[in-house]
Amino acid sequence: MATWRELVTFIKQSYRVVREEPEEIRIRLHFRKDPDDPERTQMVVIAREVLDRREEWVQIATPFARVDEVDLRTVLAEIGHTTVVGGAVVMGDHLVLRHSLPLVNLDINEFTDPLELVTGAAELLEEEFTGRDDY
């Protein structure tokens, strides 16, 4: 997979798309720790980014809390101890876990593994720091 169009085609075939725009696609992933636990969901924004007007990248981003509702130092310390893929950023009013990958020569596992890791980590952070399932 080496183009945005090919990635979007794969995403549409593999995930539930909730919104699509020319440079962005949104999907919702579902999580359940145990069969008896209620299902939780996580919204993921996958966007095409162009670096230096020549290199295509894909950015995976998922919000997990509002900035004004958490202690940023505690959240960042937790991410530092538990998260392997992605980093936390502030986007508007939200804390977002995100990860970026170059599209050129991208293998499918180089997309799906970070997608699952970033989204799963954001889901755990959301549950731990907000106690809700807003995203």
Rank of each mutant, 00 (worst) to 15 (best):
A2S: 08
T3Q: 00
W4M: 08
E6V: 03
L7F: 03
S14R: 13
Y15S: 05
V17Y: 02
V18N: 01
R19F: 14
E20N: 00
E20C: 00
P22V: 07
P22Q: 05
P22C: 09
E24V: 03
I25F: 00
R28A: 10
R28N: 05
R32K: 12
K33F: 15
P35R: 12
P38H: 12
E39D: 05
R40S: 06
R40W: 13
T41M: 07
A47H: 00
R48I: 02
R48S: 04
E49A: 09
D52E: 15
D52I: 03
R53W: 11
R54D: 15
R54L: 11
W57N: 15
Q59H: 10
Q59R: 15
I60G: 12
I60A: 12
I60N: 13
I60Q: 13
A61N: 12
P63G: 13
P63V: 14
P63Y: 14
P63S: 14
P63Q: 13
A65F: 11
V67S: 14
D68W: 06
V70C: 01
L72Y: 04
L72M: 07
V75F: 04
L76D: 12
A77S: 14
A77R: 14
I79R: 15
G80P: 09
G80I: 06
G80V: 11
H81W: 02
H81K: 14
V85S: 07
A88N: 10
V90A: 11
V90Q: 13
V90L: 07
D93P: 13
H94E: 15
L95V: 10
V96W: 01
L97F: 05
P102E: 01
L103C: 01
V104H: 13
L106M: 11
L106K: 07
D107P: 02
N109S: 07
E110D: 15
E110R: 10
E110F: 12
E110V: 05
F111E: 05
F111H: 02
F111Y: 04
D113H: 14
P114E: 03
P114R: 02
E116G: 07
L117Y: 00
L117F: 00
V118G: 07
A121C: 08
A122G: 01
L124D: 03
L125V: 04
L125G: 05
E128H: 09
E128P: 00
E128A: 04
T130E: 09
G131L: 04
R132F: 02
R132L: 13
R132Y: 10
D133G: 11
D134T: 08
D134E: 10
D134S: 05
Y135P: 00
Y135V: 01
